[in-house]
Nucleic acid binder design. Structure first.
Lengths: 167, 167
DNA sequence: CACGCTATTGCAACTTGTTGCAGTAAGGAT
DNA sequence: ATCCTTACTGCAACAAGTTGCAATAGCGTG
């Protein structure tokens, strides 16, 4: 079935370049070299995306990034942007998760790995530090042998304001 | 921007029928009446989807449901299925979250609210009971005032087998 | 049982991503 | 400076959903 192969695409990809995560100088300065050091190539399209990402600070959706790249370089194609985002993610420069609606949300330069608390009522997206989730994740590992990825964790619910409100 | 309005669609919808959640007899038997009791209508299309859901037990994706409905009634249209799924979700008969790839995954008759542990390597999807997450969620509420929805919680990482493996 | 209100449906168009493929172009080697 | 290998790019087609809108049909009333 096609749905299957579609679904696996991104996951399989994770293996090819591996290593990622740990290292990562947390800055856009050396990207060009870091990309090349992997045997990958530095192209104008990638430079454009990095330029856009460098100007970004919080959370951005994939389509927003495509739009911003087009502002700089109108010839930008979505497939290239999404594929490059995948490469940058493997380099540890960005990470992504899915919003309430399943749409991709990218986290630029994740200074510290973190999860998200997403309010289903107002859409607010608070950060959840790794330490806040630590106890929970440790328990998961101890009891179930499940090693969770904090930076891909998002919890939905109601933020303080919405939970308190009359609604 | 269109992305905005698109994103809000599902959230806003949550308000119209409200109440949901708490009650819910956890059985497909009374659906027809329960739907009507809400001032909603019982249609052949809905009957078809419920028939499909009743035969289902674990987790299913939206497109799989559309396909199964088409097996029974070839004239089925995606929009109707997805809209009906939304209605059933508000009745508490199903719930949905997003898989690793952001695709929708529906949980039929959630006997007990539960979250998911999704393995990014092998794709396994283990259930996480509400009690397993209780301490964590309570902390979240106490410290941050954030009221989380267990049944929409999914944690990604590596399952015991994959975490242990050579990979 | 016909009537009317309005919840639903189906269609068509659109959004967000993904993918196979053939052509293009980095960048190391000569 | 030129060649060669092969990592990218762009295109076109497709998958999964979502949405606006006009037509249809539940179902409570009279």
């Amino acid at each position: 079935m096609t749905a299957r192969s579609l679904a696996e695409g991104r996951h399989e990809a994770g293996r090819s370049l591996a290593t990622s995560h740990e290292a990562s100088a947390k800055s856009w300065d050396g990207v060009e070299d870091r990309v090349r050091a992997r045997g990958l190539r530095w192209t104008p399209q990638r430079a454009t995306l990095v330029e856009v990402l460098a100007a970004e600070k919080g959370h951005v959706t994939g389509s927003q990034l495509v739009a911003r790249c087009r502002d700089i370089e109108p010839a930008t194609t979505p497939s290239t942007v999404y594929r490059t985002l995948g490469v940058l993610e493997e380099l540890g420069l960005i990470s992504h998760s899915h919003g309430l609606d399943g749409r991709e949300v990218f986290h630029v330069l994740p200074a510290t790995a973190h999860g998200h608390l997403i309010c289903g009522a107002c859409g607010a997206d608070e950060e959840l530090s790794a330490s806040d989730a630590a106890v929970f994740l440790d328990t998961l590992r101890r009891d179930r042998g499940f090693v969770a990825e904090v930076d891909h964790l998002s919890v939905t619910g109601r933020c303080r304001a919405c939970a308190a409100g009359p609604r």
